[in-house]
Amino acid sequence: MSRINSSLLSVLKKYSILFILIGLVLVISVLSGGVFLRITNLLNVLRQISVIGIISLGVTMVIITAGIDLSSGAIVAIVSVVVASLVQAPNAADRLFKGGQPWPVFSVLLIGLLIGALGGLINGGLIARFKIPPFVATLGMMTFARGWAFIYSQGRPRGSLIPQFEIIGQGSIFGIPNPAWVLLICVLITHVILKHTLWGRYTYALGSNIQAAIVSGINTNRYILLVYTYAGFLSAVASIVLTARIGSGQPGLGMSYELDAIAASVIGGTSLSGGIGSAGGALIGALIIGVMKNGLDILNVSADFQQVMRAIIIVVAVIIDVRKNIKRS
């Protein structure tokens, strides 16, 4: 009997953050009189968390290596304006390239993803090759990419995108919004990378003990490059989804998204000191932030008070989660 109890306790501890999410959902469902649980609202939540969720997957991998990525939001911006400028309707009033035709969507996606990956690659290069602390390197990329977003777009939003592109963010398949599909695919891919590949195992090794990783012959530079490139790539994915959703490329897009993504990652159990974290955790972290925002809006909590509530819920969630880790070690 006591053995069953202790194993139940260990399950509770292991998945404490999941139970926090479930608790949050229950409270909001009751307070909103069931409105929260309506299918349309649940789909809203999925759509609303998709962008931060996708970014937080890459950020989680970076944090597992004991790094940090502050450039996600700015990469969202540069990818957004470049991609949008290539798929503007020919007669758009704010068309960046006057008189041109929209490019094929597939090639535009490729360009957008390459730009994101390149941004991440530069981050990784600065960190691995020049030994610049990740905080500084990605802070540099943050202002660098944001600056280029403004230069490229001439400081203006670029709208009137062709419907073939907008469908990525606005359409749905089997009743599930496309952004949610993209998020789920990214979660799966990231999960497989982390748990079932050498790359994933080395990612944890880098964060737990980099000296040991070097001594055991791991090419640490290569894996740092890979991880940051992947994070940049995912920021580009998120940017494309968001740009298509709102039908406009904007240089000011994604402001402070990096902080939301880091928050989602940490709420999801990723340790800022490295070595611990998972794709599922990041998803749950993003869900907790999203459910909270959605719930507070539905319950008509005032804007000023929402900020305070969110802070309290986030900190309490992490306190509960951290206590679990202390007890285990």
């Binding site: 609202n41 809203n44 609303q48 959703r245 925002k293 959605n294």
Partner: peptide
């Protein structure tokens, strides 16, 4: 977009 979605859901 998110805020109005939530308003309508209420």
């Amino acid at each position: 977009v998110a805020v109005v979605e939530n308003w309508l859901a209420s």
